[in-house]
Design a binder for these strands. Sequence first.
DNA 1: TGCCAGGCCGGGT
DNA 2: ACCCGGCATGGC
Length: 211
Amino acid sequence: MAEQILEIYHLLHRHFGPQKWWPGETRLEITVGAVLTQNTNWRNVEKAIANLKGAGLLSLAALAEAPVEILADHIRPSGYYNLKSGRLKNLIAAIGSSDDDLENFLAGDLETLRHDLLAVKGIGPETADSIILYAAEKPIFVVDAYTHRILSRHELIWAESDYHEIQELFMTSLPEDVALYNEFHALLVRLGKEFCLKGRPKCENCPLQGV
DNA sequence: TGCCAGGCCGGGT
DNA sequence: ACCCGGCATGGC
């Protein structure tokens, strides 16, 4: 099983090349993006981030200061804006509102950080792990809908496997390496977008044939 | 036009 | 414990 996981990585890397993820120029941008992209196309998230940036709202202090309705208005393109503006507020409240609080927050050990993130209402396992891997740059494997669908269609997991189970599969199969986890997740999303969309019954012509 | 996107929560059985 | 609806914009 571990060999198959590694084989998938090598096949994807050979097929697609390096992905250069996560899009986002600062830790804060990555953190905010992780919330905004919940069940949402990244293209829409980019518009929302651009709005925040253009309004000078992309700092912890500004995000903490701004009324939730103002946040909602700016992140509108990312969808679920009433939910997500509240979730951002919850997250900011947990992190702190001065600009170096994020560094301190992300600097803790992985288990504590994950626990603290999951305690925030609106932050589930995928959002928490995305922040840990891409913003804090600590080694945790991010599982998303694509990961689940891809492994399920290739019959490497049961369709009813849960988040933790799939995460364990990757983490016990791979060396503990931030760059590897980063790249692998990015490759799975790339594969998913091109070959493993929800509407199609099978991943036709995908580069994983025969795994 | 309808379906889908890098989830998560809360309420009903 | 499980299941399911709600949340919402923009792209193809």
